[in-house]
Amino acid sequence: MTALLASGPPARADDLPTLVFRQHRFVPDRIVVPAHVKFRLRVQNTDDSADEFESSDLNREKLVPAGKDITVFLGPLDPGEYKFFGDFHQDTARGVLVAQ
């Protein structure tokens, strides 16, 4: 019973780490996630043009249409920092995911 209580309640969709494309930037541009577990990352695009969530470090590349959300499945990750960027706006849309 103690082990069940220590693990906490199951994660809800609202608890997903979320990145937002806003004015061709990521908000926030740094997200902390737990290491060594699988998780979902929600990516919302509030801009009026499509962009692409891309990361060589995470081996992911997904189109995010304007005004839409996508889910990116990641992990388990070793502790460390993993860079990501918006492929269509690489000069402004940059960020880092930190697994700890």
Rank of each mutant, 00 (worst) to 15 (best):
L97K: 04
D91L: 05
G86K: 01
A13E: 15
F84I: 06
T18G: 00
P65M: 06
R25S: 12
S56N: 05
P65T: 09
R30L: 09
V33Q: 12
F39Q: 06
G80H: 11
A50C: 05
S56M: 06
K83D: 13
D78L: 08
R94D: 04
P76W: 03
G75Y: 06
G95D: 04
F26L: 07
S56K: 07
R30V: 11
Q100K: 15
R40Y: 00
K83H: 09
D57A: 11
A50W: 15
A93C: 06
V43F: 01
P9E: 08
P10A: 14
E54M: 12
S56V: 14
V96C: 02
Y82I: 03
N59P: 00
E52F: 08
E52A: 06
M1K: 12
D15P: 04
H24C: 08
G67M: 12
G8N: 12
F39H: 03
P79R: 10
A50V: 05
T46F: 09
D91M: 01
P28L: 10
D78S: 12
D14A: 15
P65A: 12
V32D: 14
A35S: 13
Q90F: 01
A35L: 01
Q100Y: 04
H89V: 11
M1V: 09
D51E: 14
A6V: 08
H89C: 03
A93W: 05
E54P: 00
T18P: 10
G75L: 07
M1W: 12
F84C: 11
F26H: 02
L77S: 00
L97S: 08
R25D: 06
N59G: 09
Q100A: 13
R22L: 11
F85S: 03
H36D: 05
F53G: 00
D15K: 05
T92A: 08
P65K: 10
R12M: 11
D69N: 15
A66T: 03
D48F: 13
T71P: 00
A50Y: 14
R30F: 04
L19K: 01
F73K: 11
